[in-house]
């Protein structure tokens, strides 16, 4: 076994050269690519996370919008019901009033007719009594005539009755 320091020197030179070459042409680019991939993965994860967050936010928004719409619809239905109730009440009220009015009018008219009829009857009765009176006065000449007259009337009455 012999020792040659030249081997040591050559080994040192070779190793340093190899280190330099490998780093320049092989490992440098390789480390770069690995670092780039790491960044890519990081970015992808971040993007996925942010899109998930966005989706969640949108879902919540949508839920809120839906809830709002539902509430609004409920309100609209409620108000429509109230309005229709009010209108129905109003219509019934108006009909009732109209009916009352018609009834009152009819009553008044009936009263009027009645009064008119009574007045007309009264007028006729008074006219009749004047006629009777005048006829009596005309025929108050004699007893005979008088009797005749009464009979005549009685007959007339009997005929009419």
């Amino acid at each position: 076994m012999s020792f040659h320091w030249e081997s040591t020197v050559i080994a040192i030179i070779a190793f340093v050269l190899l280190y330099w070459l490998l780093n320049k042409y092989a490992f440098g680019p390789l480390f770069g690519v690995m670092e780039k991939r790491r960044q890519l993965v990081n970015e992808e994860i971040e993007a996925a996370e942010s899109s998930r967050r966005e989706a969640e936010q949108q879902l919540a928004e949508q839920k809120r919008a839906l809830e709002e719409a539902r509430k609004e619809a409920q309100e609209i239905i409620e108000s429509a019901r109230r309005t229709s109730q009010k209108q129905a009440d109003e219509i019934i009220q108006a009909a009732r009033e109209e009916a009352n009015r018609l009834k009152n009018e009819a009553i008044r008219e009936i009263q009027n007719e009645k009064n008119n009829a009574i007045a007309a009857l009264r007028r006729q009765v008074s006219g009749l009594s004047v006629q009777i009176a005048s006829k009596i006065l005309e025929k108050q000449v004699d007893e005979k005539a008088h009797e005749q007259l009464v009979d005549q009337y009685l007959r007339e009455v009997g005929k009419t009755s």
Binding site: F3, S7, T8, A11, I12, F15, V16
Partner: peptide, 10 residues
């Protein structure tokens, strides 16, 4: 061993 010594010296 002299080659290894080179690495060790580095």
């Amino acid at each position: 061993i002299m080659v290894n010594l080179g690495l060790a010296v580095v």
